[in-house]
Design a protein around this nucleic acid. Structure first.
Lengths: 214, 214
DNA sequence: CGCCGCGCTAAGCGCTTGCTCAGTGCTGCG
DNA sequence: CGCAGCACTGAGCAAGCGCTTAGCGCGGCG
């Protein structure tokens, strides 16, 4: 059985922050992107200067503009890659072949673990949407719509199969995604919980929300 | 029986956005504060200029500095008032005299309804913490710690009374608060759901999370 | 060897930012 | 009426912003 964990595992070989961006080339562009993720996550997009990003990447401010047209394009690249990964996690789980409860638990465990393990990236991806330009934001919003659809599909399947008791499917879908996304806001790498622990806790809570196994 | 709804009701007479800031005087200072809430919620603190705020309040940029020392003080005032209100809602519910399930439902309904009805204010209050200065942030963090304690107290009471089945009380407390807070991010006044509907939906979901009545 | 092309830097342009200050008009008191 | 007090404005300062441009150093090719 293929699980959403496979999607997560296949997406990145290592566990470090930079290792997750292996697909970005050339190396200087990747360094700038990783620097931007760190700066955006720490201070927010608007409070981050191009000098800040270039400095973190060990380059002069002008070097940024050889690889990216604007500061906003950097944010768009980060947001696009992050949303692609998030969507793949959820669609892989939704397309799995277990019961609805198994697929929902798989989706939550993997989605939450990614938000916790990559909470700096996730914070930028989830909370800096408004800083994107009109067209870029529209593209990202479409990806989010598909993420919502994937989770709703699992819950709908569970209701039809009699596994779940969910009076308000769209509302519960929204709440589940909201709960998982907000992990990026509060998760602290120095805290007591590991990403795996948070994933397990949240999967349990979400299964209770849909009243699975009652 | 006194409920958290009383705390919410007593805090503000009307339903409009400006009516919620009745305690702020004089009138010009209140107008500036309401303008700042709108601008911060729409574009974020760092993307908002003092000219923006003054313009919305129908004043010149310099007028802002008669009532507030800095732009950051404006944010602090908003954050302080909002956190006070949120804390009062949760503590009133926690100190109520119903069962743990009733008090938890009361807390969630009222807390969520406030986040939905005042989602512009709540967005600033919940998502612009990092923009505060060192000392101001420490003051606000303490209020948030007390909010967490209020919710944890209700859940602990429910566990002791045998009403709830909660393996991880701190983790579940965190999840409940996170779920409610994130309402401020996605709630849209033009959307299909009213604050009351979201409050009722969320109270149901949270009671399921603590396995009340199983 | 000579020199082309590419990645990068130093310097800086035009503009906006948070914030200041001298001065203006209006309100209320004698 | 006269003037003091105060909320407020017009103009603008120093600093910092996103971004541009001229030119430098260096590796590869004829």
């Amino acid at each position: 059985m293929s699980t959403a964990q496979d999607a997560e595992g296949a997406a990145e070989g290592g566990t470090g922050e930079a290792a997750a961006w292996g697909e970005v080339a050339p190396e200087a562009a990747r360094r700038l992107l990783v620097a931007a993720v760190g700066a955006f996550a720490e201070r927010g997009y608007h409070a981050t200067t191009t000098r800040d990003i270039a400095g973190r990447a060990g380059m002069s401010p002008a070097a940024l503009y050889i690889h990216y047209k604007t500061k906003e394009e950097l944010l768009h690249r980060i947001s696009r890659i992050g949303h692609d990964r998030a969507l793949r996690i959820l669609e892989t789980a939704a397309d799995g072949d277990g019961s609805a409860a198994e697929r929902l638990a798989d989706a939550v465990v993997t989605f939450v673990r990614w938000h916790a393990a990559h909470h700096t990236t996730a914070r930028v991806v989830q909370y800096e949407l408004d800083a994107l330009g009109e067209e870029h934001r529209a593209e990202i919003v479409e990806l989010r719509r598909r993420s919502d659809a994937a989770v709703r599909r699992i819950i709908n399947d569970g209701v039809k199969a009699g596994e779940f008791d969910v009076p308000d499917v769209p509302g519960t879908t929204l709440a589940v995604l909201s709960l998982c996304i907000d992990v990026a806001r509060w998760f602290n790498a120095e805290g007591r919980r590991t990403p795996d622990e948070v994933g397990a806790l949240y999967a349990d809570l979400v299964l209770r929300m849909v009243a699975a196994g009652s």
